[in-house]
């Protein structure tokens, strides 16, 4: 049975099991949900008005920024079409909420309240307001387990936003750190660099922020630099997250994942060489 699962032979069984466990998760989550509901119900009118005003201001700010972005995007598409490459404009998203249950404490996994009933599929990227959080691991009917990017068995193809340097970010097992082990000593990377997803491998959408470099140690005796980055997503504090509906892996991305490029296969996680 153990081996069976290691080889990922029984995805349907996994889904059934996850679905069977849902009532228990739901039950444990219930008091927290109720508490929130009551807080919302009982919060004073003034507080609500204040929050409303604040949100409206923020909304306007974002609208304004979005206008500029729209224009940039159009320009970008035009330029890309000049270069005859395709450009994905937008992805559909699904908002999911965190369920307050503790799973296996030795892995970085969380549970969300959307499942295959809502169109969630394994491998689907998960974002929060600040960056990429992880990808869907197992799916049940109405819940899904998400593996965070800091899980030790997770790897994510990224590039440095400043100069487009591509590499892979591995989870370190700590919620505050990702490791970039494959960068040579002379790579152009500094503290404070923003790392964004590169979209290689087709699992994650292009260009979302992933992490910010916090530490670069270059030891002359070692072939590779030691680079550590801190995820921009609030991995342990976000309650709402976005499930991005990209095209399923395989499909249109076949040429890429078949190519002998190593980055492509990596973000599956388990296949780290």
């Amino acid at each position: 049975m153990t081996l069976d699962h290691r080889q990922h032979l029984s995805a349907p069984v996994r889904e059934a099991v996850q679905t069977a466990a849902y009532p228990m998760h739901f039950l444990v989550n219930l008091p927290f949900d109720m508490g929130e509901y009551l807080v919302e119900r009982l919060s004073s009118r003034r507080a609500l008005l204040e929050e409303n005003a604040r949100l409206r201001n923020q909304h306007m700010l974002y609208e304004a920024r979005l206008q500029r972005l729209d224009q940039l995007e159009r320009e970008n598409i035009r330029l890309q079409s000049l270069l005859e490459s395709s450009y994905e404009v937008e992805e559909a998203v699904l908002i999911a909420e965190l369920m307050r249950v503790d799973l296996d404490p030795y892995r970085h996994i969380i549970q969300v309240d959307k499942g295959s009933r809502h169109g969630v599929f394994p491998g689907q990227p998960v974002l929060d307001a600040h960056g990429i959080m992880g990808q869907v691991d197992t799916v049940g009917r109405s819940s899904a387990v998400v593996r965070l990017i800091t899980d030790p068995s997770h790897a994510l193809p990224i590039q440095v936003n400043r100069n487009g340097l591509r590499t892979i970010a591995f989870g370190s097992g700590s919620l505050r750190a990702l490791e970039l082990p494959h960068l040579p000593n002379n790579a152009d990377i500094r503290e404070g660099d923003l790392l964004v997803s590169s979209g290689l491998g087709g699992g994650f959408p292009v260009g979302y922020p992933v992490a910010r470099v916090t530490e670069v140690v270059r030891e002359p005796g070692q072939p590779f630099a030691r680079v550590v980055a801190e995820p921009t997503a609030k991995l342990d504090r976000s309650r709402e997250m976005l499930l991005v509906r990209t095209r399923r892996r395989g499909g249109d991305y076949e040429e890429i994942s078949d190519a002998p490029m190593d980055d492509a296969g990596f973000q599956d996680g388990d296949g780290v060489p």
């Binding site: 699962h5 069984v13 466990a21 998760h25 296996d104």
Partner: peptide, 16 residues
């Protein structure tokens, strides 16, 4: 088995 299902650990791990 139930605990494996709940915690998302490998199915059969706690069962064994």
């Amino acid at each position: 088995l139930g605990q494996d299902a709940l915690q998302g650990s490998l199915l059969g791990q706690h069962a064994l």
